[in-house]
Amino acid sequence: MTETQPSEQIPVPAPDEDHVDLTDFLEHLQELLVENTDIREFLQDLVTMTAEKLSGNGNTIACGVTVIRQKKPVAVADSDPLARKLDDIQNSFGDGPCLAALRTRTITHVPDVREEARWLDYMQAAACTDVGSILALPMELNSTAEAVVNLYSTRPHGFSHEDIAAAERITATGAKALYLALKIAQLRDARENLAAALASRTAIDTAVGIVMAQNRCSRDAAFQILVSASSHRNIKLRAVAENVINHVAGDRNIPTAFEE
């Protein structure tokens, strides 16, 4: 995995106009997908590579990514402490160039933090750090989530026209990979939840059967008894069911016929 220490950021040769070579970038993204790394690790590598790709010519660029789902930031990765600090400041204000990029789905460029008239509170706080200019690019994730790439240059006017074009290409490429990674994680999650549900349902059905036999009652009535016990004692329904089964059979593990 790529190291994330800021001091180790390797200055790559200046991006050749907007013909930044993305071959190694693509290969690495593909590797991450194949290895099935988790989202956090994936984002961490993505920001590190993006920062490396865009830095050069003595212009150090820090990169942060924020993934938002149902209005809440769910995953954040930053290439170095400067990006982390600036992302944190912005999320605490709830407004700023990156969040604006996210909301309006357009690229937001702040050429000089000290002369920016928008988001005054944020700019004041940002001016206390080393940041000179900011570029924020939204990611297209086909509505699985929303994400924005935040680029911070230590220089004012740190993003040339070519840099912006290069950043756009890198972001678009990264977004496709991130979309896949999110989708894979989502499916894996859904599958795990379903497996857990099948196991839980087996226990609950068994317990319902036991209560029906003991109380000579209907299935609905047996369910009612279990649900009441669960809500009165503030114990999960599944735990109540397992207790019932345990009481009768002394067997806590109810195997579910469900193959991985």
Partner: peptide, 16 residues
């Protein structure tokens, strides 16, 4: 509750 329909249904199915 910030729960997806998927998640809720799976859980509800899991408790019978």
């Amino acid at each position: 509750g910030n729960i997806s329909l998927d998640r809720l249904w799976t859980y509800y199915f899991g408790i019978g």
